[in-house]
Amino acid sequence: MSTDTQERTSPGRSNSVIKDGGEFDTSDTIIQLRDLNIHYGSFHAVADVSLDVPRNRITAFIGPSGCGKSTVLRCINRMNDLVPSARVDGSIVYSGVEINTPKVDPVEVRRRIGMVFQKPNPFPKSIYENVAWGAKINGYRGDMDEHVERCLRQAALWDEVKDKLKESGMALSGGQQQRLCIARALATEPDVILLDEPASALDPISTLKIEELLRELEANYTIVIVTHNMQQAARVSDQTVFYSLNERRQGVLVESGTTAKIFTNPDDQRTEDYITGRFG
């Protein structure tokens, strides 16, 4: 397991340095969460989450269901703004800018921090339109055909769909749909891509394809992925963040660190129990 992760620290990819303590160098952090508290109405769903997300790395959120990992993920691109009862307190800094403030337009945030959802949700439009739409509304000025092809290639979908770009995105298989959704997210040229359990509705082979794809994307994008599958976190991520529920049923961040460290030598007993309990 650990060797697998170590191997992946390929040269020339990033100037991040993994320090001895299993922490990432904080000077190349792209997203910083500080004291994040999330309420749904009177329900205190997530308490006091602080976290650094390193640039051009894959960060995995793991933990039991209902522990708030998706909720935290959705704060990062202000998707929780769409839930009327949700209230997000605390600081979310993206590239040095505080984004959890009414002054920041969530629309601007979401163009730079894209999202892929649990269930593949292509637009009921053609494959081409699915990719092009986000670029179009954000005023992309280049050659759209080229752009669509580039995104579909990046999402490892081009060869499968190049002859049927005019067909509906809904007609693809589940795994293809999810890669189409990734291509769609890439089309706005984001810095960060958030993935909320992207493979949970897919078969093992499609899941494998998505995981391989994430590794390729890592060179150019920062990726945050929520997964309920610990093997998946171990396979794909550089940093792993473990969430759990405290005694008041609030989601809390228990521990974060390099994936190697979390899966081999966690500091917290709860992390250890969760990891070994599942593997064991």
Partner: peptide
């Protein structure tokens, strides 16, 4: 479906763009 709206918001659409291009046609 909510997923359709989320997808459109997720690529940086404004509320009216989501309504005009996705919700209304559907």
């Amino acid at each position: 479906p909510l997923g359709l709206r989320q997808a459109a918001y997720g690529v940086g659409a404004t509320r009216w763009q989501v309504v005009r291009h996705h919700v209304l046609p559907a």
